[in-house]
Design a protein around this nucleic acid. Structure first.
Lengths: 195, 195, 195, 195
DNA sequence: ACTTAACCGAGACGGTACGTCCAGTCTTACT
DNA sequence: AGTAAGACTGGACGTACCGTCTCGGTTAAGT
């Protein structure tokens, strides 16, 4: 049972929250992650710096919330084949990482997260875990169809999908090729089935 | 024809060069990429800051030379199977990225490179191209053995190998699992062969 | 004729007033004038910051009321000699300025008042005027006794007494010497008489 | 014997020093002591903030050097009478404190110095001591002329002169009356002689 | 031997961002 | 309407780096 303490004092303004996130998304896309200062975000959002630090611990947390808060409403793909499902999931990943803000933010954001053990753990728990659950569903169905053996290393497959997409789009800056998802899924699915 | 201008004045001291690279490797491993300042490197190497900037354009270039200068003497693997060759190459990659300095440097270094179009191009030309040539050799031999079709997307395979390893070791900070190379190579090789 | 508007709503709580003044006196003595924030006063008095600003215009006004509200009940000294009367008045001044809170508050308070023309005028009208009236009485009696000529520059004498005491106790931080009042009064009285 | 260590590195630029002091004097006169920020000084002097903090520990030290660095070349007055000498010295004091920058700076500067024990000691040692030496000379001559007894409390007289002038000009903001020095000196001199 | 030009250590320089703190105002729910 | 709590804008603080510059002094190659 959670003790719900009645909040006291002036409640936080949701419009302020939204204005900050919007300013962050704009600025990171315009100037890049490293060149974006929190002072500039505050100025663009017409907000004091304190208001930023009251809600987020620093640049990384702020950008993470601003850029990667896909409510993830898309259903788990069910195309009837492992390869089709993997391609659909990879495409979802590419779509999420292909916005101008995401492309500009990704490498710097991951670098900042990687520099702190707690944040590193958050990548796994907050970002990868939901995707892994969807991937487990996909493999479960593939196993029922007899396409895949039971003991697939789901973590490795997920890390490979994410790592490949991040490296291509974020680090190398390649334009999002519409065939990319199918290519990746093709190799991966066949590699798993053939074991 | 390159005009070789005879250098005049005092020649650069090779010991200074080495001292800077050593200090860089130490500091990046101790404090991390972002927290490592060039002033600290200069102080540790007992060198003026100008001496750094005379030789490298900034932190990224310096760290790149200090950490990733594997003279790459290892021969192209030839184990007799595509899977074996891929596993050997992946292991070489993991070895290169598993030193304390490399793990600490990788995400921040890639972020800095990714932020500048010229540097981004250098990742392809300086770092990936040598690896790609080795990978082309491997695929060539596999094709001769009949393990693989002609039209393998070498770039994609390479990006996947590098991206996966970087994400695992650099971003997530996972300890280097001795079975990792085989796992990755297994899926990839079978995925390619099964096409 | 003053229009007495009947106050509407909840009347102000006198105990709140007292708690704020007490917290102010404590904090200014503990931390000094500049380091004392109104937020800290509010917290110590268990009061909202608005309650402070509703009653005082800022730090200077609040500290002034908290520290210098000697209801000045002491009678005008009448020792029978100019020197004795001046010594008594100077001692009253020293007593008022010698509390820990007053010593800590004085220089900063005067600086804040001095920075604003209106507040500067208030030093004369609110603080110096009552003292001047008492000093005029003293000189009046001295003149009747034949100790002093009619045209004494009362303002100058008062400014000299206050300025000297403030400089000694507040600025230089000298401990209050019990002979100080007599020394100052001695020179001043003889200087006036000898004209 | 003082060990003169050879200065290493780039020497400090005297023009930078002068530009900062000039900007400080201007700004403190324009905006007042409290409202003058070191950031504004740096901007006006076209200088980085670090350069300020490298030379001065804070606002108080900077303003002190900028405003109160009278090389004090004026000779010790020798008018032939104690009253005349005191009047001359008081006038020197008034002149030093009557510049726009000094008037604006004095109360806030004294408040900041008073808040720190070390700085408080510096008022005595750096500012008052030279004046005291001159005052001792004056009293010495007066004693030789038979105008004054031997045991004058020089510190008290000096504190009274300074305190009175500071209070009048700095705190109350009175315009510098040309008769002020004579009035103060008149009372003080007669008060001393009459003992 | 002497000149010349680049190298070198040290640290000052202009500039930008950091994260914290406070002032003074405003917005809730409660009394 | 007064009140406690605390969010809000705005701005100064003092620190840390960046990348450049300016010193005194060193080290070879070319004269």
């Amino acid at each position: 049972m959670t003790t719900v303490t009645t909040p006291r004092g002036r409640p936080r303004d949701a419009r302020v929250h939204a204005a900050i996130l919007a300013a962050t998304t704009e600025l990171v896309a315009e100037t890049g992650y490293a060149a974006m200062s929190l002072g500039a975000v505050a100025a663009r959002a017409r907000v004091g710096k304190d208001t930023l630090y009251r809600r987020w611990s620093g640049k990384a947390e702020l950008v993470y919330e601003a850029v990667f808060t896909t409510t993830d409403t898309a259903p788990v793909p069910d195309t009837g084949s492992l390869e089709g499902d993997l391609a659909a999931m990879t495409q979802q990943l590419i779509d999420e990482f292909s916005t101008p803000a995401a492309i500009a933010a990704l490498p710097g954001l991951l670098a900042d997260f990687a520099a702190d053990p707690d944040s590193r753990a958050r990548i796994r728990s907050d970002f990868l875990t939901p995707a892994k659950e969807r991937l487990v569903d996909v493999f479960e169905r593939a196993r029922e169809r007899g396409e895949s053996a039971a003991d697939v290393d789901t973590d490795l497959v997920l890390d490979a999908l994410v790592g490949t997409v991040v490296f291509r789009l974020g680090v190398l800056g390649d334009p999002p090729d519409p065939r990319l998802a199918r290519s990746i899924a093709g190799i991966t699915a066949k590699g798993i089935e053939a074991r």
